[in-house]
Computed example of a mutant assay.
Amino acid sequence: MYRTLQRYGAWRQYSVFEVDVSKTERVELEDELESHIEPSDGDRIRIYRLCEACQNNTTDLGSDPPDEQSNVL
């Protein structure tokens, strides 16, 4: 999962990635992630889509985000 998500975006903290993808890339990413999960083992992925207004109204508290900004929203 980590390697797949890292190709599309930036790791932020344990189990949290930020990605900025097109609709086509999102479908590809979801298909790839789905192939890695095992629901019978309790695996689950939650994806949140942020509208442009939401993206522009985010607030970071604490330390600066990592320098690597690969496809970050």
Rank of each mutant, 00 (worst) to 15 (best):
G42K: 04
L73S: 13
E32W: 01
D31N: 14
R49L: 11
E52P: 01
D67G: 05
C54Q: 13
H36L: 13
Y8H: 10
S22Q: 07
M1R: 14
K23Q: 12
R3H: 15
R49K: 13
P39C: 04
Q55D: 06
F17L: 02
Y8P: 00
S15G: 06
A10I: 06
C54H: 03
D64W: 09
R12A: 12
D43L: 01
T4S: 12
E25Y: 05
P66M: 10
E68F: 11
A10Y: 01
I45Q: 05
M1K: 13
H36K: 14
Y2K: 12
G9P: 01
F17Y: 14
S40W: 07
L5G: 03
T24R: 14
Y8Q: 04
L29D: 00
C51G: 00
Q69C: 11
E28L: 15
D60W: 12
L5A: 07
E34F: 08
T59A: 07
A10V: 11
E38S: 11
E52G: 00
D60E: 12
G62W: 03
A10L: 09
V72D: 08
L33E: 02
Q6V: 11
D43F: 04
E18Y: 13
D31E: 15
D43S: 01
E18K: 05
E30N: 09
L73P: 08
T24W: 07
D67P: 07
C51K: 05
R46P: 00
D20Q: 14
V19P: 02
Y2P: 02
V16M: 05
L29W: 00
Y2R: 14
A53K: 07
D64S: 15
S15N: 10
Q13I: 08
M1S: 14
A10P: 00
Q6C: 09
L73D: 10
N71V: 02
V16Y: 07
E32R: 06
F17A: 05
N56F: 01
T4K: 06
R46F: 06
D31C: 07
L61S: 08
R7L: 07
Y48G: 01
T24A: 12
Y2H: 15
D20Y: 07
L61I: 10
D31K: 12
Y14D: 14
N56Y: 02
Y8M: 02
Y48A: 06
I47N: 01
G62K: 04
R49Q: 11
K23P: 11
G42D: 07
E68M: 07
R7W: 03
S22P: 00
E32P: 00
D31V: 03
G42E: 03
L5S: 03
Y14A: 12
I45C: 06
E28M: 15
T58D: 02
C54K: 03
Y8S: 06
P66A: 12
D60A: 10
M1I: 15
Q6M: 10
N71F: 10
S15W: 05
W11A: 05
Q55E: 08
Y8E: 06
R3S: 15
V19F: 00
I45M: 09
G42S: 05
T59M: 10
S35I: 02
W11C: 03
R12T: 13
R12Q: 15
S35V: 01
D60Q: 14
S15Y: 08
M1T: 13
D41K: 08
I45A: 05
E28K: 14
L33C: 01
R44K: 11
